[in-house]
Amino acid sequence: MKKITKAGRGELVFAGSLLLLGIYVLYDTVKMEVPEGVAVISPRLFPYFVGTFLIVVSAGLILTILRGNLAVPEGTEPGDPFAPADFKTMSLVVAGIAGHVILLEKLGFVVAAAVSFYLVAYAFGARRIVKDILIAFAFALISYFAFTKGLNIRLPQGIFENLFSSGA
């Protein structure tokens, strides 16, 4: 057995969580409430296969990692694929996505879209605050009108949307 590197530990944790997920699938299937007399073939059968399959392959992955066969990241970008992850940039992206999710039905699509656009752009190095915010809002407004007026897709409305639709 080779010495496990830091990257290897991360991969082990990931494989371990998948193993636990597989066990949970089996547990969920055992305690599943099956309405009586409806199904000829039990709805438990297939999940049993899937759960067992996940357990077997994640156990296999754990063995593979322990034998020193680590993953090569699947990136297409140049640069060192093994460099440690930049958590600050990543959390900004996550904040952008989470912000969109939280704000969408509270403040409407335009605000939510501008927030996710701006935060992700900021994470990737956009630093001209006024210009970036203007572009974010322009992008959000144009998409809003293209989606709702052009494609008849209903999107949550908020301050901005009402401002424009009351005038129309």
Partner: peptide
Amino acid sequence: LISLACGLVIGLVGADLQSGALRL
């Protein structure tokens, strides 16, 4: 195969079409 298994698990979520039993 891990990737395939993850896809199968996500596909399990919801009511079983035949019996209506709830899964995951």
